Computed example of a mutant assay.
Amino acid sequence: MNRLRELSSQVMDVYQLLSQEFSAFQTSQSLHCVEKCGACCNKPDIEVSPLEMLPYALHLFDTGMAEQVFDELDNYNGFACKQYQRTSLDGNEGYCGIYEYRPGICRMFGAAGYATKSGEATLSVCKPIKQSVPEKYAASLIAIQTNTHQPPMIAQGRQKLAQLDYEWGEKLMPINEALRFVLEKILTVSYYSSDIDDGVAA
């Protein structure tokens, strides 16, 4: 378990860097997430790596909630990230229930860079942000095209995480499945109280 805790600490360190980097860009371009928006959180097919869910999974284990959440995920058929807390009946408004432990993609997405097929940098901005500040979005695209302001790249952010542990960091799966995967590993390690040679366990 010590190896998992060490890995989790490293993930949280990268999270801090990603939050600072992507938040700074979004602030400089005035491309912030719309308040109370749940557009991304309402999609259970958002993919993350198991590594991204490790800090939260260990938090659940340490607070005695791991088995309960694992069982809930085993039977969960919801159409959103299970950690999304709705504040409207249609689910369009809400907030993240695990903000401190939210995955890397949640820290990067909203307004971030990605490479086109030709290798040029462009901007990925979610629909609610585009609709709320269309002029800011257009200005940001111009800044990228004229090379006056380049966005942080999602792929590079993912790579910073993946290089901590390629087995768990490169694998992508729907967010609820990723949490269940990690919880199962942690509970197995705890149950046997011995090393599991899976590349990440202590």
Score class of each variant (00 low, 15 high):
Lys171Ala: 14
Asp62Cys: 12
Gln159Lys: 15
Glu52Tyr: 07
Tyr56Asp: 08
Gly91Tyr: 00
Arg102Phe: 06
Ser190Thr: 10
Ala80Lys: 06
Tyr101His: 15
Glu67His: 08
Ala39Lys: 07
Gly91Ser: 02
Ala115Leu: 14
Gln26Asp: 00
Thr188Tyr: 14
Thr63Val: 12
Gly78Met: 04
Thr146Leu: 15
Gly157Arg: 00
Ser190Arg: 11
Gln20Met: 02
Met53Pro: 03
Ile142Phe: 05
Cys81Lys: 03
Ala111Lys: 00
Glu170Gln: 14
Thr87Tyr: 15
Pro103Asp: 09
Gly119Pro: 07
Asn92His: 06
Leu17Pro: 00
Ala155Trp: 08
Met65Arg: 15
Ala66Trp: 04
Ala80Leu: 14
Cys106Phe: 12
Glu184Thr: 11
Ala111Tyr: 02
Glu170His: 04
Phe22Cys: 05
Phe109Met: 15
Ala112Glu: 00
Met108Phe: 00
Gln156Leu: 01
Thr146Tyr: 10
Arg3Tyr: 08
Glu100Leu: 09
Cys81Thr: 06
Arg5Glu: 06
Tyr166Trp: 08
Glu184Ile: 08
Thr116Leu: 03
Ser49Arg: 00
His149Asn: 13
Ile186Tyr: 09
Tyr114His: 10
Ser140Leu: 04
Gln159Trp: 05
Val14Pro: 01
Thr63Ala: 07
Gln10Pro: 05
Ile98Ser: 08
Ser49Cys: 03
Asp71Glu: 15
Tyr137Cys: 04
Gly199Val: 03
Asp45Asn: 11
Glu100Lys: 13
Cys41Pro: 07
Asp165Pro: 05
Glu67Leu: 13
Lys117Ser: 05
Gly169Gln: 10
Leu31Lys: 00
Gly119Asn: 11
Leu183Asn: 04
Leu7Arg: 11
Val133Cys: 03
Tyr191Gly: 08
Lys36His: 12
Glu67Asn: 06
Ala57Trp: 08
Lys185Met: 08
Gln68Ser: 13
Asn2Gln: 13
Phe22Ser: 04
Glu135Cys: 04
Ser28Val: 00
Pro103Lys: 10
Lys36Phe: 13
Gln16Gly: 13
Cys96Pro: 07
Ser9Trp: 13
Phe25Leu: 01
Phe25Asn: 00
Tyr15Val: 04
Ala57Phe: 11
Ile142Leu: 15
Thr148Ile: 11
Gln85Lys: 15
His59Phe: 14
Ala111Pro: 02
Leu58Lys: 09
Arg5Asn: 06
Pro128Tyr: 05
Ile129Tyr: 06
Tyr15Asp: 15
Leu73Gly: 13
Cys81Tyr: 02
Tyr15Phe: 14
Asn176Lys: 06
Tyr56Pro: 03
Ser9His: 15
Tyr95Leu: 14
Asp45Ser: 13
Tyr192Ala: 01
Glu93Cys: 12
Ile154Cys: 00
Gln83Ala: 14
Lys130His: 09
Asp198Met: 09
